[in-house]
Design a protein around this nucleic acid. Sequence first.
DNA 1: ACTGTTCCGTTCGGTAGCGCACATAGCATT
DNA 2: AATGCTATGTGCGCTACCGAACGGAACAGT
Lengths: 234, 234
Amino acid sequence: MIKMQSPRKNKLLKDLPVAEYECIFPHLELIQTSLGEVLFEPGEKLQYLYFPTNCFASLFYDAENGSSTEIASVGNDGAVGVAIFLSGTAIYRAVVQSPGYAYRMQKSLVMQQFNQHGSLFHKLLNYTQSLITYTAQTAVCNRFHTVDQRLCRFLLLSLDRLPSNELFLTQELIANILGVRREGITEAAGKLQQAGLIQYSRGHITVLDRSGLEARVCECYQVVKTESERLMAA
Amino acid sequence: MIKMQSPRKNKLLKDLPVAEYECIFPHLELIQTSLGEVLFEPGEKLQYLYFPTNCFASLFYDAENGSSTEIASVGNDGAVGVAIFLSGTAIYRAVVQSPGYAYRMQKSLVMQQFNQHGSLFHKLLNYTQSLITYTAQTAVCNRFHTVDQRLCRFLLLSLDRLPSNELFLTQELIANILGVRREGITEAAGKLQQAGLIQYSRGHITVLDRSGLEARVCECYQVVKTESERLMAA
DNA sequence: ACTGTTCCGTTCGGTAGCGCACATAGCATT
DNA sequence: AATGCTATGTGCGCTACCGAACGGAACAGT
């Protein structure tokens, strides 16, 4: 099983030139992440940069009153903790939403690669831009779109980061992610289930009709996806 | 007048080591910006990185239905167009909200400085982080706080980027920035005026009681400000 | 089989902000 | 003075969402 977890499964590591990859590879540490695990807390000095292969994490931003919102999520499309080379410290919390494997790189190695201006350096900068896009789109979506639409966006973006069409999240958790009441999710999810688009029970969500979700989602989903693909192609 | 516009007025350029500054200085081009001027459009290939000295710009993110929101603003505390070294293209629009002067740097020079890992390089990375913070906080604020609070936040953050206590913005413009109805601003601003905190008429806003605004604003203001100061100190 | 816990469904009153329509007031131009 | 434009004020019905409370249903452990 672990053999299957090649670092190449992560899209940032996937297309690295052979020389660079071989230089980095020995220093990559495979780790297993569990549901709800916190990779780092806001304000904490980052030690590692994480490259998920088959797990994904949400970046949470706390509000004063105890509520919080997801401002971005990261799967095998990116890296968790880009602040490590920006300033050293992130102001958000990184929480594992779907358990699995990830590779991590020591800060010193990240900085070394960074200083050599390799391929990884450029990919990380591009990826940073796509994170900014995600965050900005979240701001827009929070402002203009309904809970129903935001739920669809969340489901679709999550699916894109996972191999299967199943998610393991309670309505309570989704509510926290979107920054709404739990009851709001009950209602929105109920509609989707009645329409036959998803099927859920006790924290286990199965997406039955992907295109149906796409028909209901706001534009935010496509914007984030397209921009991210554009940046990764570069 | 123009003589007064030393590049050193911009906080990113202010503390550069002498050697680096003298290398950059000859290539800085002083420009004058006018109200409403668009520095770049979303998707456009960036040519310049702008360093405002006494003007400030808003970064706007468009939603599909024609509305838009400010996701961050930049004054003499930063640079407009950091995407130039991230990916080359921004997905937001940069609009001058308060006219004045700025210096700009050709892309080639930016990249050259970037590759030399000078002081500017590190400052720009740090500043990128503070932009991300601003954007994330906007997402949170859009989600949890009232129009009244958001207006206070906007006024305070704008004041911080300006030399005086006056702003030239109609209620209509502020509404676009915050992504709310014009009438919402009429109401919120009316309250502030009645409380004697501001005075306005036909697009001319004077802030009379700064600390009064600070008493009403949500935490978002302080978070953005503190984080930005922390990052600039580094 | 019993019990506690987690997850989901539903109801109900309250409110912030929306969309719309229209009124007024300051300023400019002629 | 007359006209027109732009900025601001106000009122009204409507909807999405909130906060709180409660009920039921699935599951886990003993």
